[in-house]
Each structure stands twice: as structure tokens, then as C-alpha cells.
Amino acid sequence: MSSRPSAQLRRKVVERADSRCEYCMIHQEDAVSTHQVDHVIAEKHGGKTALENLALSCMTCNLHDVQSSRGERPLVSGSRLKFHRTALQPADADLARALSA
């Protein structure tokens, strides 16, 4: 079961990201659909529903992440999403490793 971030937590993620996808940097105003707040490390892999483990993601990057986690072919063969969060100060080693991979 997934823990949905509270409205307050979602607002903090959007504010920190300046309404930009934290992967491709597209601004919400330039996107076709609404950006989503997504877990960086999935809950099924031990990720927490906390500000440090949440990212604002556009539909394209979120779809890429879902396909990759299911073992499906990514949108760009062999690509990995590059995480662009400058405000992040990872508190735990697992999160730091996941973001630098």
C-alpha cells in the first residue's frame, strides 16, 4: 500500500522544485499535464514518504520511472533519468547512492 503525501508535503515539494520537474527541469506551465509528486526510492524498496525522498516529476519522466521499475523498455534505450535537485541534502546513504547512480 502506498502512502500518499499530505497536501502540505506536496506543496513543499512543488515549492522546493520551483514548479519544475526535478528530472528534466520542464516547468509546470510548459507541460501538457500536471506534474506529480513521486517517491525517489519506491516504498516497496524501503523509501519513505518524506520531503527528502519525494520529487516533482512531469508525466514523461514519471512514466519513464514506472517503466524502468517494471523492467519495461525505457523511453530512450539505455538512458537513465538524471536527477536535478540542488536543494537536497541526503540524510541517509541509500538515498545519496540512489540519487548519484
Rank of each mutant, 00 (worst) to 15 (best):
Leu81Ser: 11
Gln89Lys: 15
Gln36His: 14
Leu56Met: 08
Gln28Glu: 15
Leu88Gln: 11
Arg10Ile: 01
Ala55Cys: 11
Arg11Gly: 09
His39Glu: 04
Ala96Asn: 06
Gly78Phe: 09
Cys61Asn: 05
Gln89Gly: 05
Ala50Asn: 05
Ala93Ile: 04
Met1His: 11
Ala91Gln: 15
Gly47Met: 02
Leu75Glu: 02
Glu43Phe: 03
Asp18Cys: 04
Arg4Tyr: 12
Ala101Lys: 12
Ile41His: 02
Ala96Glu: 08
Arg73Pro: 05
Leu51Lys: 12
Ala55Asn: 03
Leu95Tyr: 07
Thr60Pro: 03
Cys61His: 04
Ser100Val: 10
Gln28Gly: 15
Leu54Lys: 00
Ala101Trp: 13
Gln89Leu: 06
Leu54Gln: 00
Asp18Gly: 09
Gln36Ala: 12
Val40Leu: 09
Glu15Arg: 01
Ala93Glu: 09
Arg10Ala: 07
Arg20Asp: 02
Asp30Leu: 14
Glu52Asn: 13
Ala50Ile: 04
His27Leu: 15
Thr60Arg: 08
Gln36Pro: 01
Asp65Leu: 05
Lys12Trp: 00
Cys21Phe: 13
Gly46Asp: 12
Gly71Leu: 03
Asp65Arg: 08
Ser68Glu: 10
Arg80Phe: 12
Lys48Phe: 09
Leu88Ser: 12
His64Leu: 01
Tyr23Ile: 05
Leu9Thr: 01
Arg10Met: 11
Ala96Asp: 10
Glu29Tyr: 07
Ser100Pro: 02
Leu88Phe: 10
Glu15Met: 01
Gln36Val: 04
Lys48Gln: 15
Asp65Thr: 05
His35Gln: 13
Arg20Trp: 03
Gln8Glu: 15
Glu15Pro: 00
Leu88Gly: 05
Gly46Gln: 12
Ala87Met: 13
Lys82Ala: 13
Ala55Arg: 08
Leu63Glu: 01
Ala93Pro: 03
Ile41Arg: 06
His64Ser: 04
His84Met: 12
Leu88Thr: 08
Asp65Val: 02
Cys24Phe: 06
Leu88Trp: 10
Ser69Val: 00
Glu15Gln: 04
Arg97Glu: 14
Lys44Ser: 14
Arg80Gly: 05
Cys58Ala: 08
Thr49Asn: 04
Asn62Pro: 01
Ile26Thr: 15
Val13Leu: 06
Val14Ala: 12
Glu22Lys: 10
Ala87Cys: 13
Cys61Phe: 04
Ser19Ala: 13
Leu9Gln: 03
Val66Ser: 02
